[in-house]
């Protein structure tokens, strides 16, 4: 009897209902694990906190000790029921590397994070609901190269808040923009303001909204794309990437150029003096 009832009901169901049911079945359960390594600086930690506040579908884990054993992260993701991982790897208490990985089978990307500005800065005057969904805005450049297309897909899946995610609000009051400039990915977060900027009053409908920056800001410089999660064969390697260590070494070398030159000059002089000794003075012993 119950089955009969069910079939009867399904026959009379609206098309909309069918679509809705289908959607709920296909709902994305994207959850992101957010982990930092040890040795992270305060600014980098604040960036992490900002991202956690903006993305309600993330789960923050305690800092992990080892930088070698990254297989551990896949296990952690499985335990936490997450299908993506943000891993913030701090090096030398100054450089921040960000891994975005789809656990457990990959792919994964390693970025260098540069130009970090957190939400705490007073210059960014926007604000948004905690847990509201963002509009993700991508630069058209993302469609030009295969590796950028892959990055776009991964960023969409990790930075997009899935519909109906826990702790999320159903409204759209901010937009994340990802732009490719100078071979890097620049991230910005703006509030969508539909009020009058001066008075705070209502504006007539269909006027274009204004954007007010909320923060944080950062720039992702891609280094490598791996086929697996935190490892596996390299699919893409950025030929323009210069590691921050190399940059610092170059700066130091530039600074030491003066010293190197002076040492070389001193050595040259010594060699010259030895090669051409002074002639012996014939009158040297006249008064002895």
């Amino acid at each position: 009897m119950a089955t009969l009832y069910k079939t009867a009901q399904s026959e009379f169901m609206d098309v909309d209902d069918v679509i809705e049911e289908k959607e709920s079945r296909n709902k994305i359960k994207n959850r992101v694990l957010m982990v930092a390594s040890r040795g992270i600086t305060f600014r980098q930690r604040h960036l992490l906190n900002d991202l956690e506040a903006l993305l309600p579908h993330t789960k923050k884990e305690a800092k992990i000790e080892s930088k070698q054993d990254m297989e551990l992260l896949n296990e952690l993701a499985e335990i936490q029921n997450c299908n993506s991982v943000f891993y913030f790897e701090a090096r030398k208490h100054q450089d921040l590397f960000m891994w975005i990985s789809r656990a457990p089978s990959g792919p994964s990307v390693k970025f260098l994070v540069q130009n970090i500005h957190t939400m705490d800065e007073l210059k960014m005057t926007g604000n948004c609901l905690k847990g509201s969904r963002p509009v993700l805005s991508f630069d058209a450049t993302f469609d030009s190269e295969p590796y950028l297309q892959l990055l776009k897909e991964m960023l969409t899946q990790t930075f997009g808040v899935p519909k109906g995610a826990r702790k999320s609000k159903p409204f759209f009051d901010h937009v994340f923009t990802f732009s490719v400039v100078d071979n890097r990915i620049w991230f910005r977060n703006y509030q969508i303001s539909e009020k009058n900027a001066e008075t705070g009053g209502d504006v007539p409908k269909n006027t274009t909204p204004t954007l007010i920056e909320i923060g944080p800001r950062f720039v992702l410089n891609p280094i490598r794309i791996f086929e697996g999660s935190f490892g596996g064969p390299t699919l893409y390697e950025n030929p323009r990437y210069i590691s921050p260590n190399a940059v610092r070494a170059a700066v130091r070398a530039q600074g030491s150029a003066k010293y190197v030159r002076r040492v070389a000059e001193a050595q040259e002089r010594e060699a010259r003096v030895q090669a051409e000794p002074l002639p012996v003075d014939p009158l040297k012993d006249v008064f002895d």
């Binding site: 450049t141 519909k163 893409y236």
Partner: peptide
């Protein structure tokens, strides 16, 4: 890379789940 992108894409989901917009002109 292209193959991998096809593999991981959740393209069959409706747009409202993703909410991504690509600009008409590159920056």
């Amino acid at each position: 890379l292209s193959a991998l992108r096809g593999e991981i894409s959740q393209g069959k989901l409706s747009w409202i789940q993703r909410c991504d917009i690509t600009s008409t002109t590159p920056v």
